[in-house]
Amino acid sequence: MTIWRKTRVLPGMLPLAVVVLLTAGCGTQRAGDAGDAYRSARPTPTGVTTPSTPADFRCPGESSAPSAPTAPAPQDRTGPPADHYAENHGFRVPIPLHGRNRCDGLAGVGRVKGALEPLRRRGDFAPDSVRGTLIGLGYSAERVRAYQNGSGVGFLIDIGASPWCVEGTMSGDSTRAEAFGGYPDGADCEPPSGGH
């Protein structure tokens, strides 16, 4: 024979119990837990692609094939806490260009350096001269910045496509320029002032 007893539930206990149950497991899984191993062992459904490192190829005029990007080394979880400076300032690291965009960037850098070289040889390090030369290449006046940088001139061009940027300096020794795809936390070619 079974005896049933009535138990009285205090008001507010049910909502409290629901909250406790819902939050009990939140935030307890860390990278490298068994769940990650399970997820990576599952097969990818047919027709679904997984992200991969973009393939770069030799661009026209490039003397050697680009080097393949290297994967970061796994972190040692048993050692002392890592210095998080690089992690905390990653928002200031420009996004590299890959594939066709990389080739377009290299071509743009070549055009910029070729146009600025006569100014450099003449010793014309006026920001207005550099800006005028870059605008003369067809870049929009609103998207070209030139500024004094020590004894030389710095410049930044926002090409305006997704963003696509060329940045560099011109000094008595050389003209340096590089193309990149903006910044992780930015919407244009200007380095962001704060991270996330």
Score class of each variant (00 low, 15 high):
1 M>D: 14
1 M>W: 07
2 T>H: 10
2 T>W: 08
2 T>M: 09
3 I>M: 08
4 W>F: 11
4 W>H: 11
5 R>H: 13
5 R>W: 03
6 K>N: 07
9 V>K: 04
9 V>C: 03
9 V>R: 12
9 V>T: 12
9 V>Y: 12
10 L>N: 11
10 L>A: 14
10 L>I: 11
11 P>V: 14
11 P>F: 08
11 P>G: 12
12 G>F: 13
12 G>N: 03
13 M>V: 12
13 M>G: 00
14 L>Y: 02
14 L>G: 05
14 L>S: 12
15 P>T: 12
15 P>I: 06
15 P>Q: 12
15 P>E: 10
15 P>K: 06
15 P>W: 09
15 P>F: 06
16 L>V: 10
16 L>K: 10
16 L>H: 00
18 V>H: 06
18 V>W: 05
19 V>C: 04
19 V>F: 02
19 V>R: 06
20 V>P: 01
20 V>C: 10
21 L>Y: 06
21 L>D: 07
22 L>R: 09
22 L>E: 02
23 T>G: 15
23 T>P: 02
24 A>P: 00
25 G>I: 03
26 C>K: 07
27 G>E: 07
28 T>N: 09
28 T>R: 15
28 T>A: 13
29 Q>H: 10
29 Q>L: 09
30 R>P: 00
32 G>V: 13
32 G>H: 12
32 G>A: 13
32 G>K: 14
32 G>Q: 14
32 G>C: 12
32 G>N: 13
34 A>P: 04
35 G>M: 06
35 G>Y: 02
35 G>W: 01
35 G>R: 07
35 G>A: 13
36 D>T: 08
37 A>K: 07
37 A>I: 05
37 A>Q: 10
39 R>V: 09
40 S>L: 14
40 S>Q: 06
41 A>S: 15
41 A>Y: 00
41 A>R: 11
42 R>H: 02
42 R>A: 10
42 R>M: 13
43 P>I: 03
45 P>K: 10
45 P>C: 06
45 P>Q: 14
45 P>T: 05
46 T>C: 00
46 T>E: 11
46 T>H: 05
47 G>I: 02
47 G>Q: 06
48 V>P: 00
48 V>R: 08
49 T>S: 11
49 T>A: 15
50 T>V: 14
51 P>N: 04
51 P>A: 13
53 T>N: 05
54 P>Y: 01
54 P>S: 09
55 A>R: 05
56 D>F: 04
56 D>E: 01
57 F>W: 01
57 F>H: 09
57 F>K: 09
58 R>G: 02
58 R>F: 00
60 P>W: 11
60 P>M: 13
60 P>S: 15
60 P>C: 09
61 G>N: 07
61 G>T: 03
62 E>K: 04
